[in-house]
Amino acid sequence: MDEITRVVLVGAGHAHLHLAANVDRLIARGAHVTLVTPGAFWYSGMASGMLGGDYRDDEDRLDPTALMRARGGDVVQDRVVSIDRRQRRLHLANHEPLAYDLLSLNLGSEVYRPSRLAPPGTPDVWAAKPVHRLWQLRQQLESTLATSAPPPRLAVIGGGPTGVELTANLLALFERYGRSPRVTLVGNDARLLPGAPRGAGRWVARRLMRRGARLELAASAMAWEPGTLHLDDGSQVAADQLLLATGLVAPELIATLDLPQDAHQGLAITPALHSPDDPRLFAVGDCAWLASAPYPKLGVFGVRQAPVLLANLEARLSDEPLQPFHPQRRYLSILNLGDGRGLALRGRLWWRGRSALWLKRHLDHRFMATYRAEDDTD
């Protein structure tokens, strides 16, 4: 096998955060490791709580640069614009091309933006990702909620877990300032949380309405102009701003690769987490698609892939066998409802209340504290 010394990690997602904290293990096997990332790691698990006022922005982000450099890795703060697999080079927005022998992509995902609602550059249209935009939305809303001026009317598009959580935390932000909520949730399905047990969907719908949200279900958003959202049944919703929770798709960079992929799900990978057509190119998290065992775009899967990815990069450096990743069939998902309560979902099981939110906060703080502690060792 050709000598492998240059390992490049693109993106600071859940899995690469783990690699940054353990990069000395790759260096010990003779690798020079570089992380390419445009900025901080923002934790999606606390994003809605940050929008609702539970967390400050600095509580929801980490610095992967400190983790890498503390253990001998390098960092290039930039964005990859294209990948030349033949020459094994990355073309960056603001730096010279970067060569690699092994490449790992942990790019996350983007919110699907229907062109009929949000052409590129449309103001007053927000999305669940990137997470730092939710902090900007909160700042903008607070600047109005703290005054006597009427706050904007908001419409959240999407009745899945993300749409529910964002709606609940927008209500929480209004409640913190003693203002009457002006939030409408629009969902395609006839019920909220269509993938969850019916009882959970009914309970959360009642909870949101009791707190003042308006629900428009079994409805599709067809067009938007400032002040008015048009639905497919001809009705209208008053909306000065939109918040999109319309599902996640792979980043545009993935589509530029001449490798097997799904237009929405991401780059096809083997159970060993590399492309079936390019064993030098690994991909994990939301930007990857394990066709043999598809998994949803949730951070828990990036976390579970992290030790397998690290072990397989070590194996490639030492010409050893790779190990497979087996995604779990059942997983725990907990929604922060912004009112001191959570909604926990695991398969067909669900429970709600303060204990569910306590568990979510415990898990989220434990995850963040792990890497803050790693950072403190610098």
Rank of each mutant, 00 (worst) to 15 (best):
N94A: 14
R202F: 07
L310E: 15
L231Q: 02
A283I: 07
L19I: 14
R138H: 13
A155P: 10
R366H: 15
R366L: 13
V80S: 02
D278H: 06
A288F: 04
R88H: 14
R138P: 13
Q265V: 03
S220A: 12
Y295W: 09
L242D: 01
W224V: 05
D57I: 13
M50K: 08
G53Q: 07
V76F: 02
D278C: 12
W42F: 15
L185V: 11
L19A: 03
I27M: 05
R210C: 02
V164T: 13
V308T: 15
P271V: 12
P123Y: 00
G199M: 08
G108H: 11
G247R: 07
R372D: 05
S180V: 14
V186K: 10
L322I: 03
P97A: 06
L215A: 07
V125W: 02
A306S: 03
W126A: 01
Y43V: 06
I157G: 09
L273M: 04
A263R: 15
H18E: 14
L335K: 12
G159L: 13
A219N: 05
A20E: 00
D101S: 07
P197R: 02
V125K: 01
P294G: 04
R89N: 01
I27H: 11
R61M: 10
D376V: 09
H230Q: 14
A31S: 03
F282G: 00
D84H: 09
S115T: 10
L335E: 10
G187V: 08
V156H: 11
W203N: 04
K129H: 11
R182A: 14
A311H: 13
D286F: 05
A250L: 05
R56T: 15
P181K: 07
H264G: 04
G266W: 10
E110F: 04
E225A: 07
T167E: 09
A21Q: 01
A223I: 00
D60H: 12
R182H: 09
L253E: 06
L231A: 02
S292V: 15
P152A: 12
R176P: 08
L9Q: 09
A99N: 08
P321A: 06
T167N: 12
L51D: 09
T122C: 00
G39I: 03
L173A: 09
R280F: 05
L310R: 13
R182T: 00
P296Y: 10
V81Q: 11
H14Q: 13
E216A: 15
L267W: 07
L359I: 10
S318G: 05
Q139Y: 01
V8P: 10
